[in-house]
Amino acid sequence: MEKFSQHTGVGVPLRRSNVDTDQIIPAVYLKRVTRTGFEDALFAAWRGDPEFILNQDAYKAGSVLVAGPDFGTGSSREHAVWALKDYGFRAVLSARFADIFRGNSGKQGLLAAQLAQEDIELIWKVLETVPGTEVTVDLAAKLVHCADVTVPFQVDDYTRWRLMEGLDDIGLTLQHEAEITAFEASREAWRPRTLPAKHLPPVEIVAARPVVRTGDDALV
């Protein structure tokens, strides 16, 4: 994972609250089996609207998203983070993040920085008054700078440390493999195992077929 200590880029004001992960990336894009190339899927439903913020030239190259509260709610899809990253975003600023989204972000090197809503409003004003204004997110100092606005943000210490060091979670955990093995030895016998598989007797499943309708019963 790439180290993250400070980032400066064009700020994108997204004046919406409750931006759920279905809006960030609709389910239809989740069928891919790769880990990259989701930039076209970001906010797909809104991108068709010429007025949408990312369709405006000044904001197109944005890399710091400044969103309303409750960003990333809903589905756990990590594709939401991939889509934001693939598009070029390095940080999202919001007054409140959904837990799963925040966790997913930290693992992928996307900074989810929590600001007070009134500070978000201040930054929105700057970004809307002077489109294309850059925002600097300083993870070391936990500060956001945007024109003459400088405000603090929150991120938990552990995520901050991992982002700044660029550390991979699995590698960190496997340093403690002996402890995992010791824990496994203490697990009770009643805890379930999926293998060997136990089943009810196999039964044939009949495939449903499309209903053919005629006359008065035809579907609209």
């Binding site: 756990s76 899809r77 990590e78 594709h79 983070v81 799963i100 966790g103 997913n104 693992k107 992928q108 938990d156 552990y158 979670d169 699995i170 960190l172 955990t173 496997l174 493999e177 995992i180 496994e184």
Partner: peptide, 20 residues
Amino acid sequence: FGIGTSEVEHVLATQTLPLA
């Protein structure tokens, strides 16, 4: 609880999760 794909990989590899 639900987890993201990185965590799915983490559980597949280690059967554990670091959780706040």
